[in-house]
Write a protein that binds this DNA or RNA. Structure first.
Length: 586
RNA sequence: GUGCCCGUAGCUCAAUCGGAUAGAGCACCAGCCUUCUAAGCUGGGGGUUACAGGUUCGAUUCCUGUCGGGCACGCCA
């Protein structure tokens, strides 16, 4: 909260202590939607009415009478059923401008986090191919959220979990190998459940250049003991899918046997290539991670085995059908889950438990996992496992990010993960630009489906909300450039001449920035920042059209320039949180 | 079938942990450039917040049911 809000709140706390000393009630100030209802409003009287057995309007008056005198307050009135509306003095309202200028970019910083350590883990896509537009939303959301949490006083660590241990990586390695073999005239049919994108062929080509024939084997050897691809093309056919999966497993087994140590080399090569591509892609999107945490490392250092042993020692595991199960139903999950397969290999669930145990061991006060909404069914079993390990699951929060649909020319663009025909984040970024992409991604609540209008995002026109905000910022800097004075003069500018409705309106928005940050941090809601910026920009444009800034009167000119400079600094700060640039000219 | 999310203007979406007359943008209509950037501004029409109940001073918000949409229900990750 801003210092001013704290002061007003303190007045009400004092009055509450006087009127109702025995009733525990937190003072919450509201910001009325309508300007006629003052700058702040309190519902204390409405909340007290029942407990005290008195009419709310009477209580409201008693609270008002008990408010300590303050130079900040012009008038206080009872309104409606018992609201208490506070009207600030002009000087109190104007003071926010110098507050913003003095803070120099720290305006909006709040102490919600109180220095607590929070980890935000996001994207964490399998490194088996390029990031697509769905990952882009997770990236934009996670990065913006991390920035907002940092601004709200948390010490933030940004992490990407690299799923480098599973079968999907083997499939990518084999897919690359098959393309490589095809370059030597192999006639092996490419499996439908392999990775089919062009990037796989590119990696195969590179492998051919660097390794020559070292990875070459005969078709007969590669296909030995494989069941073959199902002749059925119908991908909804369960039997066909099972058959194809068995075929793939046999191919993987053959690859490991035939290539020996070279298989590991191939595996590492495709992994590193995809990770590097992913890192570069995200960096160009303005998304930087502090840590890329390897799933494989949890197996290598025995963390997975240890955590499974710990669950076993606690009596939470049992054997059935040759597999090892975790009794997650004991903690509210709808069914028990396999933790170690019949073939002895740990499931993804096992390493994920170890990963989360590791997060807790690293001492974060708060752990935020940003997941795609399609993983929501996975949450109860993770929570169950952490409970079984005796960890405080309240420290783990999992905001979900819903799907993205692309629209072009008013029609939904089809995306198919199969055959690699999905739209990549890189393609989106190239088409609409980083600023528009980052902004559009956070323009919706994260748990809502997002319709991404490509035409709107790339239009350099009045319809495009990201340009609308950037334009407000550029306009201000254009005026400042025209003025040509020293910005430092504005810090000391007398503000009492700022008395227009538009000017008080802008001050109200500036005062609301810290509250916006606090709310966005507490609710994991970057979209509130996006909406705030749009509203602030609208207020600025309206002011711009109604008022001349570079007027003759020195005092008035400096006061107006100080106000718009304060607006520009908040626009720039907010855009930066969302990963959007704030150009000074457009 | 079971679980989770969602349903607000013609369209895309907001609505400050239950608050006052539910707000923006697009689209539609009417205006504003001799003046700091018209990528802008001003005004107007548009709503039984899917439906039916309940909780209370007050419900888009919380609860129950119905209808409709999305997602998840694997010894994949």
């Amino acid at each position: 909260m801003s210092p001013l809000s704290e002061s007003i709140k303190a007045l009400f706390q004092a009055a509450l202590h006087n009127v109702a000393p025995d009733i525990p009630l937190a003072v919450v100030l509201e910001r009325p939607r309508q300007s006629g209802h003052g700058e702040y409003a309190s519902t204390l009287a409405l909340q007290l009415a029942k407990a005290m057995g008195r009419p709310p309007r009477e209580l409201a008056q008693r609270i008002i009478d008990a408010l300590p005198p303050s130079t900040l307050v012009e008038t206080v009135e009872v309104a409606g059923p018992g609201f208490i509306n506070v009207f600030l003095t002009a000087a109190a309202k104007q003071s926010v401008v110098s507050d913003v200028l003095r803070a120099e970019g720290r305006w909006g910083s709040v102490d919600t986090g109180r220095g607590r350590h929070v980890q935000v883990e996001f994207v964490s896509s399998n490194p088996t191919g390029p990031l697509h537009v769905g990952h882009g939303r997770g990236a934009a959301f996670g990065a913006s959220l991390a920035n907002i949490l940092a601004k709200a006083g948390f010490l933030v660590q940004r992490e990407y979990y690299v799923n480098d241990a599973g079968r999907q990586m083997d499939i990518l390695a084999v897919s690359t190998w098959l393309r490589y073999l095809a370059g030597f005239g192999s006639s092996i049919a490419f499996p439908p459940n392999g990775y089919q994108g062009d990037y796989v062929a590119a990696m195969a080509e590179k492998l051919r250049r660097t390794a020559g024939q070292a990875f070459h084997r005969t078709d007969e050897a590669v296909l030995e003991a494989t069941p073959g691809i199902s002749p059925t093309q119908d991908d909804t056919d369960a039997a066909a899918a099972t058959c194809n999966e068995a075929h793939m497993d046999a191919l993987i087994a053959n690859a490991k046997r035939l290539l020996g140590p070279d298989y590991f080399s191939l595996h590492q090569q495709v992994l590193q290539e995809q990770l590097e591509d992913c890192r570069e892609d995200l960096e160009a999107f303005g998304v930087i991670f502090d840590e890329w945490f390897s799933e494989q490392s949890l197996f290598n250092d025995g963390a997975v085995a240890r955590v499974v042993e710990q669950l076993s020692a606690g009596g939470y595991l049992y054997e059935q059908d040759g597999a090892r199960w975790f009794r997650s139903t004991a903690f509210g999950d709808e069914k028990d889950r396999v933790i170690q397969r019949e073939n002895g290999i740990f499931t993804y669930f096992a390493s994920d438990i170890a990963y989360h145990a590791n997060k807790f061991a690293r001492g974060f006060d708060l752990i935020v996992d940003v997941w795609g909404a399609d993983h929501h069914g996975y949450i109860p079993r993770v929570m169950a496992a952490l409970s079984a390990l005796g960890l405080d699951v309240q420290r783990l929060q999992i905001p979900l990010v819903q799907f993205v649909s692309l629209y072009r020319h008013g029609e939904k663009a089809q995306m198919s993960t199969r055959k690699g025909q999905f739209v990549t984040l890189r393609a989106l970024r190239t088409e609409v630009g980083r600023d528009a992409a980052r902004f559009f991604y956070v323009l919706r609540k994260s748990d809502q489906h997002l319709d991404f209008d490509l035409d709107l995002a790339k239009s350099e026109s009045n319809d495009n909300p990201v340009y609308y905000i950037q334009y407000a910022h550029a306009r201000i800097h254009s005026v400042l450039a025209k003025w040509g004075g020293d910005i430092r003069q504005l810090h000391a500018a007398p503000l009492s001449s700022l008395t227009h409705v538009q000017e008080f309106g802008l001050m109200q928005w500036l005062r609301g920035y810290p509250e916006t940050i606090e709310l966005a941090a507490l609710e994991y809601a970057p979209h509130t920042v996006a909406f705030y910026l749009r509203d602030l920009a609208a207020a600025l444009h309206s002011y711009y059209n109604s008022t001349q800034f570079l007027v003759e009167d020195d005092t008035l000119r400096l006061a107006r320039l100080a106000l718009i400079y304060a607006v520009a600094s908040v626009l720039r700060d907010g855009l930066q949180l969302l990963g959007v640039s704030a150009p000074e000219s457009m």
